[in-house]
Design a protein around this nucleic acid. Structure first.
Length: 514
RNA sequence: GGUGACGUGGCCGAGUGGUCAGGCAGAGGCCUGCAAAGCCUCCUACGGCGGUUCGAAUCCGCCCGUCACCUCCA
């Protein structure tokens, strides 16, 4: 059958539209990446997950994909209008906070970039084709700013260079913030540059020789404005026109509106056809914030570090969550709707991921055994896959897609026996499901994040001793000493070992504790 | 105040005019020495008020509520 039409909601048109790449069957898109001044939290990754799902869906319908995802490692000011030398940026603040950990601002950026990439892989996000860093493209940015000044789209003041918003058509089209007067009326009480000609004008270059990161420019030492880096890096790696651009909903204004304006000024027309924005998530029904104690970074959940001050106390003794369970959790909400992240959902997700894994193991055994027999699974699973793909193509409807996937795994579980033929069908389905949703097995080389292992024994030694204890319990059961058998089970449970008595003998696994 | 999004059962979340979403939790049952896991059954909602229609969670209007952005937060 022909693949379904891939449709996405376009912030620019307020409609869900068929995605039609400029180059047939080749999707080229840019994803706004993080500013690396701290560990990324699960909300950040909800947005990056959207980009990953766009990639996977496009690949599933046979398209090529070129994705550029940047790292913002230049510290930008916390207030755009505050272009005085005393202004601080987030990276500088981070360095002051953690000065003892890092030699300098570049060291800090490197540390958090590495941490970010590690989390990226842990969540089984596919690697973008290009991952440019802002600090490595300052020359490109400078050239763009010079061009904008020369073409009259920008002007200089003592404090920097500003983009002249009224030099392009339809500024603010993306957000709907089109009224100059409106922005003026709501301007915050910040230090303004009196030489700015329009309150909407934004900085392309900031004059500041004391900034921790500074570069030489025709206007003296300083650093680039925030919006210009994405315009420049997007065009450099994807061309003057490309298909799609992703980011968090907070970036709609001003960042993406500014980017659109810059691109128009530089190329004479808009660069991007589709804008896709991911809604913020909430945690336990509230805005995620450090003061509420519901602020989760990826590493908090998947690999707790009890001595790390970044890990909030309420979960410092928890964590150890399967990163794919975290991924599965984030799939329970469609990217464009508010999503309420709860530990309860995470707990459930961990169980579901385990079901996929158990089914996968069983299928592998059945392939090995290769018993003759019919294949009742093939058609059912084929149908499940079709519905999964259709759901993904329908504006990344991940809740519907995971529902169909769960139905598929139930078909495998329900089969009393798996013939070789059925097992091969199941293997094919599991692999394609994992390709599309990435929820069964990680594709990365990284070691799985160290689960908290308080045992002094290594993994295999530990397993051997658990097996020995279980044998003792089996002996007790055989002798009818049920009180002793239950005591052994309770002891193991207290150690985080879950015991299941199967017809073929006892089985155990580590409990998922949240 | 401006801009944009969203309101579905105890909870999370599909569903865009008429037939079951699904999951979690809960209740009962099967299985088990007892459990756990798994399986079966049950629980049936659409923020409010109008309107369109033979028929609306689904379309329209108004209201209420939640969230986000309004100069650097994904």
């Amino acid at each position: 059958m022909s693949p379904p039409t891939f449709r996405l909601y376009n912030t620019l048109t307020h409609e869900t539209e068929p995605v039609e790449p400029i180059e047939d069957e080749h999707l080229r898109f840019y994803s706004c990446g993080p500013t690396v001044y701290t560990y990324a939290h699960i909300g950040n990754f909800r947005s990056f997950l959207t980009a990953d799902l766009i990639r996977r869906t496009a690949e599933a319908i046979g398209w090529d994909v070129t994705n550029v995802s940047n790292i913002t490692d230049v510290g930008h000011l916390t207030q755009d209008d505050l272009v005085d030398p005393g202004g601080e940026d987030k990276m500088q603040q981070a360095l002051e906070r953690e000065g003892e950990r890092f030699a300098n601002i570049y060291d800090l950026a490197r540390h958090y970039t590495d941490a970010f990439l590690k989390d990226w892989r842990a969540l089984n996000l596919r690697e973008p084709e290009v991952r440019p860093r802002a600090t490595e493209h300052v020359t490109d940015q400078l050239e763009a700013v010079i061009e904008l000044v020369e073409t009259g789209h920008a002007y200089t003041t003592d404090k920097g260079v500003y983009f002249r918003v009224d030099s392009v058509e339809d500024y603010g089209q993306l957000s709907g913030n089109t009224e100059s007067e409106q922005l003026r009326a709501t301007e915050r009480d910040t230090v303004d540059d009196p030489e700015k000609k329009d309150p909407r004008d934004f900085a392309l270059w900031k004059h500041d020789p004391d900034h921790l990161m500074h570069w030489h420019s025709p206007w003296g030492w300083g650093f680039p404005g925030w919006h210009i880096e994405c315009s420049v890096m997007g065009m450099r790696y994807l061309g003057e026109k490309f298909d799609l651009h992703t980011g968090g909903e907070d970036l709609i204004f001003p960042h993406h509106d500014c980017e659109i304006a810059q691109n128009k000024a530089l190329t004479g027309g808009p660069a991007v056809n589709y804008w896709v924005h991911t809604r913020f998530l909430q945690v336990e029904g509230e805005k995620m914030s450090k003061s509420k104690g519901n602020f989760y970074t990826v590493r908090d959940l998947i690999a707790p570090a009890p001595d790390d001050d970044h890990v909030p106390a309420p979960i410092r003794t928890q964590g150890g969550v399967d990163p794919l369970a975290l991924r599965y959790t984030l799939l329970q909400g469609q990217y464009r709707k508010p999503f309420n992240f709860t530990l309860d959902t995470l707990r459930t997700a961990a169980r579901h991921v385990q079901r996929f894994r158990d089914a996968s193991d069983r299928v592998d055994e059945a392939i090995e055994a290769d018993v003759d027999g019919p294949d009742p699974l093939g058609p059912k699973l084929g149908d499940c896959y079709d519905r999964m793909l259709a759901a993904m193509c329908d504006d990344l409807n991940t809740p519907a897609a995971t529902a169909a996937a769960l139905e598929g795994v139930r078909h495998i579980e329900d089969a009393d026996t798996l013939s070789g033929a059925a097992a091969h069908s199941a293997r094919f389905w599991l692999d394609r499901t994992n390709d599309l949703l990435g929820i069964i097995e990680s594709e990365t080389e990284d070691e799985p994040p160290a689960k908290e292992d308080t045992s002094p024994l290594s993994g295999s030694q530990f397993a051997t001793s658990v097996d020995a204890v279980l044998q003792d319990r089996e002996d007790a059961r055989a002798n009818g000493e049920y009180a002793r058998a239950d005591a052994i089970r309770d002891t193991l449970e207290a150690l985080g070992i879950e015991v299941m008595d199967r017809p073929e003998g006892p089985e155990w696994r580590r409990k998922v504790e949240l």
